[in-house]
Design a protein around this nucleic acid. Structure first.
Lengths: 134, 134
DNA sequence: CAATCAAGGACTTATTATATCTATAATATC
DNA sequence: GATATTATAGATATAATAAGTCCTTGATTG
């Protein structure tokens, strides 16, 4: 199991948008080019972030994407779950008597990871990143 | 991204083996049947645990699998890594200037999860599990 | 109205997960 | 020693998911 590339694209795009103007949108063309991915594919990914309410899109000439929330509201977990979904990483589909003790441990572990992703904001990283592309 | 079913099979099998005799091996036939999976496939999974040194196999009649370590030495992480591998869950393959700050955060988060899986032993669960199949 | 841009549906391709089948090698029992 | 039993391993098949393309539609700007 690995995080998908889509998640990586999403995270890097968000970092760019946080560094960019909160007013003037950035076109997907530009965002895609800097990451070496096709605009149509990246567009599909960003649409999920739009639906999650994290960014907003502007159609038409000079359109693109920009943040729709305050920087400090956006956590790693928000972005990841918008792309990967919120389903648990481990699901035991056996029919046990009661609950699955193994699954309980796995979920605890997952929560440790999520907890860290939830308390880390993308803006924390943006400060450190002085390079344009990240 | 999800943990594979193979990991689930491995964890449940290990739990069974911990509850079973440390001397008399349990046949894959029996292990497979109780989990509703084919013996050949489960065998492939268990072979990885053998190579990881967690269990040992006994060929021939009345053969099967049994623990090769002390119960308390076996952690969730051991089993999971034997099946899923030890590669990081997140790998940024972009060519940044230095390191990827996003990847750093992701790895930190992953370590939180691993830390919990490392300190939780399968034997802890085995005690609670009074049902034969888990 | 023409150029520009995102959204979305249908489709393709690549990769990984989940097996199955068959042959081989090891071991116990008779 | 012969036979039944059992794990190992290679080749192959199928299914699911990831990753990406293509084309059309609709919104917006100038």
């Amino acid at each position: 199991m690995r995080f998908t590339k889509a998640t990586n694209y999403a995270l890097h795009t968000m970092l760019t948008l946080i560094a960019a103007s909160p007013v003037t949108p950035v076109g997907v063309q530009q965002l895609a080019e800097s990451q070496g991915v096709s605009p149509t594919y990246l567009s599909k990914i960003l649409t999920r972030l739009v639906k999650a309410g994290m960014i907003e899109s502007v159609s038409g000439a000079n359109g693109g994407y920009r943040l729709s929330r305050k920087k400090d509201d956006i956590t790693f977990l928000d972005i990841i779950q918008a792309i990967e979904g919120t389903a648990s990483l481990f699901e035991c589909d056996f029919v046990h008597g009661d609950e699955c003790l193994i699954q309980d441990v796995m979920k605890e572990a997952e929560e440790k990871m999520e907890s860290h992703l939830k308390k880390t904001k993308l803006a924390d990283i943006a400060q450190k990143a002085n390079v344009s592309l990240r």
